[in-house]
Amino acid sequence: MELKKLAPWNWFKKEEEHAHAVPVQHAEKPQGVPGGHTPPMLQLHRDIDNLFGQFFAGWGMPRLGNWEGLSTDALLKPKVDLSGADNQYQLTVEIPGVEEKDISVDVRQNTMTIRGEKRQEKEEKEKNHYRIERSYGAFQRILSLPEDVDQDSIKAAFKNGVLTITMPRKALPASEVKQVAITSE
């Protein structure tokens, strides 16, 4: 039995690669200690978290500790739900308080990128605030599409702060099966 077939499709393969990519160092943003070196213990923590994260990713488990979230320029990651039926996949993304025109969805090389920006309305500027719990700024999610998604007929709808993307599935060309004749001798 092929073990790979048992594991579900990892929709977040690209996103994880993205997150693990070496971040571009900005001169004015020292990370950790001066000199640009990550403290060895922190590095070890990260490595272990990444290891566990990668291990569990294939089993549909949420990622463990997310160090990227600590940096100030991190993109927001809206929550997504995925479901699949025989004829289509459905992806829903939670994006409240954003207008349709501020969301973009593109598909390139089997990778779907959903991005946009949640802006704070100007009129509130002069008001005193008691609490700000909601997050504002740019957001992005990256999804790796399975082979059988018909990329030309992907549809997206936005309603009540939830973006719904439907991806019809197409039949993959069946791999050739060769019958091997058994000769009796």
Binding site: P8, W9, W11, G60, P62, K79, V80, D81, L82, S83, G84, A85, D86, Q88, Y89, Q90, E94, T166
Partner: peptide, 8 residues
């Protein structure tokens, strides 16, 4: 639609 494959 169908089975949930990922739920956040």
């Amino acid at each position: 639609v169908g089975a949930d494959t990922w739920k956040e």
